[in-house]
Computed example of a mutant assay.
Amino acid sequence: MNHPATGIDTTRFVELNDGAHPVRIEYQWLNAERTDAPIALFLHEGLGSIALWKGWPQMLCDRLDCRGLVYSRPGYGRSTPRRREERWPVEFLHRQAHDVLPALLDALGIGAEERSRMWLIGHSDGGTIALLYASAFPEALAGLAIMAPHVFVETMTVEGIEKARSTYETTSFRDKLAAYHDDVDSAFYGWNDAWLNPEFMHWNITEEIATIVRPLLAIQGYDDEYASMLQLDAVETAVPHTRLVKLTQCRHSPHRDAADAVNDAIAAFMASHRT
């Protein structure tokens, strides 16, 4: 059922087999009644969830005249938490792009025709997942708009994630983040331990994403505390048809720090590529 004022569908759950263990995925439709409209699928950041997006996906979908699909990845939000003994491997983002996301689309009955009209909207880790999906399934989407993606590991990224761990363990940040996750330690340490794994320093997907053929918009702020503009430049080198938007007075979350500029850029980009 849709909320009468906003068109936001109530949160639902779907069961997937995530490797050896079944998981429950929390998802939500926006503007669900628009079955004729293309889908904008939102991929959240490393500590994100449906709830942490807040109202931005609905705002953007209304601007784009799209249906929206928002979900919390395993380990986040109200989806199945990460098992306490589980340590996500270096390839954890590949697993989300190559296995979990396609399985979710299958479970929701989103077929090839709908996928070919689907736009991916990804932030941070979600932007990386969008890139990996688009490179692995080059025809199974219409295009993608990503914000603050990671395609290789910079020293400043590791330093920012180490600082986040200290903040989580010594301040009220954990309590604030707990409002968005059923198991906040699952979300935080799954992400934090993976990025601080020494093996992750060698992670680099710049060659892999060169197979992307669909329209690609990449957005980042100059004041991003987790990465430099070398990330966007590397994306453009790998995928020369990329459209870059570099924002001043903007940190790691462009959709929060510069929402109007981001919405304008995504709307103009999609309009220029939609048939």
Rank of each mutant, 00 (worst) to 15 (best):
A148K: 10
R165E: 06
F173M: 12
Y168G: 03
A178L: 01
T155M: 07
H150P: 07
V184W: 05
Y168V: 02
M147E: 15
L144S: 15
E162L: 13
P149V: 06
R165T: 04
D183I: 02
E154M: 06
F188G: 04
L177D: 07
M156A: 14
F173V: 03
S166I: 11
P149M: 06
R165Y: 01
G190K: 01
A145W: 07
L144G: 15
Y180H: 11
E159T: 09
T167P: 00
L144A: 15
A179L: 12
P149N: 08
S172G: 06
F152A: 14
A187P: 03
K163H: 11
Y168Q: 02
T157P: 04
P149T: 09
A164N: 13
G160S: 11
T170E: 06
E154L: 08
D175R: 07
P149W: 05
A179Q: 12
A164K: 07
F173T: 04
G143Y: 09
M156E: 14
E169G: 01
L177V: 08
P149K: 07
L177Q: 13
D185K: 05
D182V: 10
E169W: 00
G190P: 04
E162T: 13
V158W: 07
A187W: 00
P149I: 06
Y180E: 06
W191Q: 10
A187V: 00
E154Q: 13
D183S: 07
G143S: 10
A142I: 07
T157R: 03
N192R: 01
D183A: 10
I146Y: 05
T155Q: 13
L144C: 15
K163V: 02
S166D: 15
E159A: 11
K176I: 01
M156T: 14
Y180K: 01
Y168A: 01
A145S: 13
A178H: 01
T157W: 02
E159Y: 04
F173Q: 11
T157V: 03
E154A: 08
G143I: 06
W191N: 14
H181Y: 05
R174P: 03
A145P: 09
M147W: 10
S186T: 01
N192F: 02
Y189V: 06
D183G: 07
A187K: 00
I146V: 15
A148G: 14
D175I: 01
A142H: 12
E162I: 11
A187Q: 00
N192T: 03
V158P: 05
A164P: 04
A178F: 00
E162H: 12
Y168E: 00
E154G: 08
Y168F: 15
D175Q: 11
D182C: 05
A164F: 14
G190V: 04
A164R: 14
Y180T: 09
V153Q: 07
L144Y: 13
V158Q: 13
M156Y: 05
D185C: 06
A179D: 13
V184N: 10
A164D: 09
K163Y: 02
Y180F: 15
T171A: 00
K176L: 04
E169T: 07
